[in-house]
């Protein structure tokens, strides 16, 4: 059998015992054959990796769905206990206090309830990779919550990358440089790419963090009218601010 035929049989799991002996002998003696085998074997591993990365991101999306259902349940129960607390408050007649809290929402609390970092949708990070690009390093820092490091790594990348303003903005938001974050979200929002919807939402949160209720409201209204991302959350938040 020719060498190509042997390789074919190997990869489609059809080598007979006799073939296998011949195959193994060639691997040892014929360097050209060995190179061809290594190449195809490498391709097999590469495809396997590519498949498992795809699978991992699918599983991550199932997981996200499960987690978000949990959060909704959690929120509902929060609303429920809050309504009990509110009735008690009214019953014992501290209506003045109640009036005051409702008319001056606590922006920090609203921010905390609504804020969660935007997931890394750019680079799938897998363990055990030999060579990490600067880009991957930046996302590893971002995902592990080392935002200061993430900012400095993101700064080294090509500033025209479409996702950069969003992820850098969120990193700044986490190290309390809200002004810088606002600047970046606004910049991201003016560009035409998939990250602008998210950038607008985080812009609203950043204004909230800055106690700038008026701007937060305007941006939230825009979110509800123009975008799908976090639309429901945006309208809930807007209602609380009215």
């Amino acid at each position: 059998m020719d060498k190509q035929g042997l390789l074919y049989k190997y990869f489609s799991n059809q080598l007979s015992d006799k073939d296998r002996l011949h195959f193994e002998e060639l691997l040892l003696t014929d360097s050209e054959f060995r190179a061809a085998f290594d190449y195809e074997k490498g391709l097999k591993l590469a495809i396997k990796k590519s498949q498992s990365e795809k699978l991992k991101s699918k599983l991550a999306s199932f997981e996200k769905e499960i987690q978000s259902k949990k959060i909704t349940r959690h929120r509902k129960s929060k609303v429920y206990s809050w309504s009990i607390a509110a009735s008690i408050a009214i019953l014992i007649g501290v209506s003045w206090f109640g009036y005051n809290t409702f008319s001056n929402p606590n922006y920090n609390e609203l921010f905390d309830t609504n804020y969660e970092p935007y997931p890394n949708t750019v680079h799938l990070i897998t363990r055990g990779e030999a060579h990490l690009s600067e880009e991957k390093k930046a996302f590893i820092a971002y995902e592990s919550g080392h935002y200061k490091e993430a900012v400095s790594l993101f700064s080294t990348l090509d500033q025209n990358l479409n996702y950069l303003d969003l992820y850098m903005g969120i990193s700044y938001l986490n190290i309390d440089d809200t002004e810088k974050a606002i600047e970046l979200f606004r910049k991201a929002e003016t560009k035409d790419h998939e990250f602008k919807e998210a950038a607008n939402w985080y812009l609203a949160l950043a204004y909230l963090k800055n106690n700038d209720e008026q701007r937060a409201k305007t941006v939230l209204e825009k979110q509800i009218l123009k975008y799908e991302f976090k639309k429901i959350e945006a309208s809930e938040l807007l209602m609380l601010l009215q």
Binding site: G42, L43, L45, A46, I47, K49, S50, S52, G128, E129, A130, H131
Partner: peptide, 17 residues
Amino acid sequence: EEEALTSEQELLKHYFE
């Protein structure tokens, strides 16, 4: 066992995609 890819295999993966 999942083996880590060599740099050649990373290239193969990249261009395969």
